[in-house]
Write a protein that binds this DNA or RNA. Structure first.
Lengths: 136, 136
DNA sequence: CATTCTGTAACTTTAATTATTACAGTACAA
DNA sequence: TTGTACTGTAATAATTAAAGTTACAGAATG
């Protein structure tokens, strides 16, 4: 993860949970996060494609949670925004003539995958409802 | 973690382990990773400041492991290169007039800290010796 | 049919990362 | 005692990634 998309998505989802089904516009959400509404709409599009939210177009439109907050785990949020490996990308192209260089990306990926599994199982214990309930 | 420093550091450490105490130059290491030697020297400087490696200046100089490979855990490597929070930085400045915006960074940081602890305890079970032994 | 939304593409700006150049300082060895 | 081969580090440039902006088509409402 190399950006703040997890934070943004969780912020969006928390707002939607607090809204209790009332539709929130991307502009309103953007005002709370203090970012550009287009970024919010992009992130909503991603969350929508993962089945976590839904949106209604047109006047008085907006977005709402597609599932109950206690049915959305933080692991699902992580999956939705994840793009790179946890500890960084193996974007180097090491020297294939070197014994270590030749194999390192494979071993790094194995390590990344297993540590990521640990993280996911930890996040899967926590739901959006848990997170949202912390706000007083 | 938002760059490939973990991969680079682990690559360096693996090469040094394989070298069995023989000094490796930054140029030689850079050739295996396929990056600029100056970056290698910077990363070596960081690893050195964390007590994982040491270097000898001057002709025939180079770097070597400061501790036995089975005394270097991957958690130590993680600590050495870590700068940001695991799931991304809370670099947004949300709207303080919003109930959620006002508190979210605090709750995100709590979440980040606890998931990071999980990751670290997982990485602390694995040593450089374990990792290095995977190379055949 | 004007208004207020979403969805999305294209583009610009900003920030972060990576690479490069340069050179002083250290150690060795002829 | 001097040339050579290294490290250490600063300064800067180039590249890449992230975030922000503009623009506008299309949908739903009243």
């Amino acid at each position: 993860m190399n950006n703040s998309r997890f934070a943004i998505s969780l912020h969006i989802l928390t707002l939607l949970e607090k809204a209790k089904g009332e539709l929130l516009s991307s502009e309103w959400i953007a005002g709370s996060i203090n970012i550009n509404p287009v970024l919010v709409r992009k992130e909503l599009g991603n969350l929508r494609s993962h089945g976590l939210v839904n949106s209604k177009e047109g006047k008085n439109g907006g977005s709402y949670l597609e599932k109950a907050a206690d049915q959305i785990s933080l692991a699902q949020v992580y999956h939705a925004v994840k793009q790179d490996h946890l500890l960084g990308v193996s974007k180097n192209t090491p020297n294939p003539l070197c014994q270590v260089g030749k194999q390192i990306n494979m071993h790094l990926n194995t390590l990344y995958d297993s540590t990521e599994q640990t993280l996911i199982s930890e996040l899967s214990k926590q739901t959006l409802a848990d997170f949202s309930s912390k706000f007083i």
